[in-house]
Amino acid sequence: MDYNWNWGVLFEEQYLSWLISGVGWTFSVALSAWVLALLVGVLIGVGRTLPNRPIAFLCTTYVEIFRNVPLLVQLFLWYFVVPEIVPQDMGRWMKRDMPNPEFVTAVIGLGLYTASRVAEQVRAGINAVGKGLVAASYANGFSTAQTYRYVLLPISFRLIVPPMTSEFLTIFKNSSLALTIGLLELTAQSQQIAEYTFQGFEAYTAATIIYVVIALMATVIAQMLEKYTQIPGFVGKA
């Protein structure tokens, strides 16, 4: 192996600032997309369990579509195709005047894709609560809305904390796909440093370490959250 080591390159002003800006974009995309994914995912997940066939069918369709098309293709659809097929004025606005088009597209694409995965967790959580509790709440005269509000959601949200934290970690990793539409997040910046300096080993190592640190932080936070939200004595199917 013939390779000139130069770890110092990572701390040269220009490249260090590239890395820092990359981390910034990775966090902004992942966190913004996570908010969107939670909002949409909870709605879709609850929708799939409702005793209303058209709504449940629509929500199932959403999940199947978003889960069975690669995220990369979805990002390209949002970035290249949607501005062409919406009404002309809106398409023109998206192409010319929309602020931060790469960022907005990445957040929407990643958020709606992750929403389908969140929805599956929410649905599994609701199904794990058990038919007995649902029957009991209806027997007490609760409406469907009340059953969800006071019985199903409070329990299932606490049951799905462990799988959701792994989704949270996944969204950080998936945010790297934003580089395909030109957003210079962490992976893109490390690739760019590798190309400029020919110090691929150092550049990719830096990115790898940062991702590992993010994963460790997420795991620690997750464990604290799990301890705080676990339901003592609850034996569910989740």
Binding site: K173, L177, A207, Y211, V212
Partner: peptide, 9 residues
């Protein structure tokens, strides 16, 4: 804990 794209790179 790392993205697939980074592994490919």
């Amino acid at each position: 804990s790392v993205p697939l794209i980074l592994v490919i790179f």
